[in-house]
Design a protein around this nucleic acid. Structure first.
Lengths: 337, 337
DNA sequence: TTTTTCTTTGCATTCGTATGCAAAACTAAT
DNA sequence: ATTAGTTTTGCATACGAATGCAAAGAAAAA
């Protein structure tokens, strides 16, 4: 029969010291003599004592918890991000409270989170209603939007330069001599998607070209399939596609090959965005825009930690540079300029 | 200037009731009159009161936290699992404390977890030292190993029938008329990998066949590449490969196509295990064993919840049936039997 | 040795909520 | 109107650790 929980008082009794001494032993930088510390540690390990983080959080006001909201993990860029971000924050001594949100329940989820006294919130692939963002900022809890932003919200954000990315791709496709360039969007209401599209059109315009067509892929397999059919079922077909993210691009390529017998890039060029691991796969070799994942994670972590420590939430918006990664899914520009 | 935290006492004062009344209002099933409840709710919403889950956990002994340990997310089956499991547990009112473990830091991580008074632990793609498993069970915290098991440990486990899966694949390949059948393993020390391999050899033996070769892929891209080269660099080459999981199988297929100009399945058949989403992709169409992800998640959740509620940790080991999913990466058996 | 300075220690209180208990309020029954 | 029965309420305490404060102890300076 084991006593369910060993408290600091139990340890204190066993070590013949006060409860404070036990607490101090486990508080870095507190004032304890070597002697008592050792007595305490001995007793603690014998009893199997583990400080109660919840109690500590209550009194110190620091829970050590950071909430991470993710909407879905289909797009494989997110697991990569999730992994890196978690590791980074864990290394800093924080624990990750993870939430998978549905489009509908986000506000409710955030309320739950707040009950757990998290010290910060990262929202990746999830949108925070601006009402709630305000609630958060009122409580002084820093919020960082990862890979999206909301103009009106006081939340900080970290994104890559989606506008520039779109622009680069537009120029790349135009330089490749394509004449009927189409776009397949992700979720139309996401800032990321909007920026990529806007940058793309901007780039096209700079080359004196207009987009040949557009379809909505909605970030899912079915949507990407539908969008592809939409663009390819007519008499005339596009000769280049910018798909708003790699995740959909793979599906699009599959449909092109299997349903329309397209050879890529001979018949049609396809470019994506994100540079997920699968982009290097033999069957795809996707030309895409590489998001600076490490830098984005690092930026997210440092903004969040800074705001947590400074107790002052000042909105910051980091926009990190992107890079074109040329593989084989799109025709190359004729000549260098 | 906003008061950082609104407490139940603040609400009580505003509503002109006692703190107990406030607490009872937010405790389902407690005894409060409609009138006071409404006064309290009104005051609470005006002040923006949110019960402090940490304080509640302290007094009630129920943190509502469940720890989820994952080692890595490269293998895309895990994000899928992660998503489903999180959703399931969230629906049950629990919060997920997520940890990404490295091979070295697992014990330390688990210690941290225990400080947060989690009510249960799920270990997916991570191994718990049996010493620590014993520590957990001593504290009465239920542990469920997901997709792995440890004989000597008191932790419950949920796996699919990896032995049977290996056996099915062996028979399938033999029936397909293959003569030089090789195996590429994942991490050799994982129970999952061991079982798949053992079942595979068993299946081969039942057909009177022995494995042609074996290499270690170690669950990573580089390892899978190395293993493929190892098996294919000699004069004689295998005509069928069982790769211990889909994640490596894609890499293997890429190497086969690009470095050895193999046509799949004409020159060599490849089968995998897991049935991750990418297995359906056009360039791969991987014949594989489908793990019953939903059932495994459900089983994990229900075992865990049951043990949490019953306060009694009785080891359970669920082994769920698998299914062969035939696509196009492997030659089909000549005739049906 | 005495005084000063610095370190170590324990006491008591605090964090925010839940809950047993007894008093109070209300309802129902006589 | 009185009693018995049922809710509702508030008081006080508990959960487990951190910390300000003052007392005690040790070390250093005089």
């Amino acid at each position: 029969m084991n006593k369910a929980t060993v408290t600091s008082e139990d340890v204190a009794r066993a070590a013949k010291v006060s409860q404070s001494a036990v607490s101090r032993t486990f508080t870095p930088g507190a004032s304890v003599s070597l002697e008592t510390r050792q007595k305490v540690l001995k007793a603690a390990s014998e009893l199997g004592y583990r400080p109660n983080a919840l109690a500590r959080a209550m009194i110190s006001g620091r829970s050590g918890l950071i909430a991470l909201l993710v909407a879905y993990l289909d797009n494989h860029w997110y697991p990569v991000v999730l992994e890196k971000l978690s590791r980074r924050l864990q290394n800093e001594g924080y624990q990750i409270l993870m939430f998978l949100t549905d489009p509908g329940n986000q506000d409710q989820v955030v309320r739950q989170i707040l009950q757990y006294q998290v010290e910060g919130i990262v929202m990746a692939s999830a949108t925070l209603s601006s009402k709630l963002a305000r609630e958060c900022s009122k409580t002084g809890i820093p919020v960082v939007l990862f890979n999206r932003y909301v103009q009106s919200s006081p939340a900080s954000s970290v994104t890559s330069d989606n506008i520039e990315g779109g622009r680069i791709l537009a120029k790349f496709l135009v330089d490749g001599g394509h004449e009927r360039i189409a776009f397949i969007s992700g979720q139309e209401n996401s800032s990321t998607n909007r920026d990529r599209e806007a940058g793309f059109y901007k780039g096209l315009a700079e080359c004196g070209v207009t987009a040949w067509g557009r379809a909505v892929g909605d970030n899912c397999v079915e949507g990407a399939e539908r969008a592809t059919h939409e663009l390819f079922s007519g008499d005339e077909r596009p000769d280049a596609l910018f798909v708003a993210n790699d995740h959909m691009a793979f599906t699009v390529m599959d449909v092109l090959k299997s349903a329309y017998s397209c050879r890529i890039p001979r018949d049609v060029s396809v470019v994506g965005y994100d540079d997920v691991p699968e982009a290097t796969w033999h069957g795809y070799q996707l030309t895409t825009i590489s998001q600076p994942t490490d830098a984005m994670v690092e930026s997210t972590a440092s903004i969040l930690l800074e705001q947590i420590e400074q107790k002052e939430v000042k909105r910051r918006a980091a926009v990190l540079p992107v890079e074109l990664v040329i593989r084989k899914s799109a025709r190359l520009p004729k000549k260098k300029n």
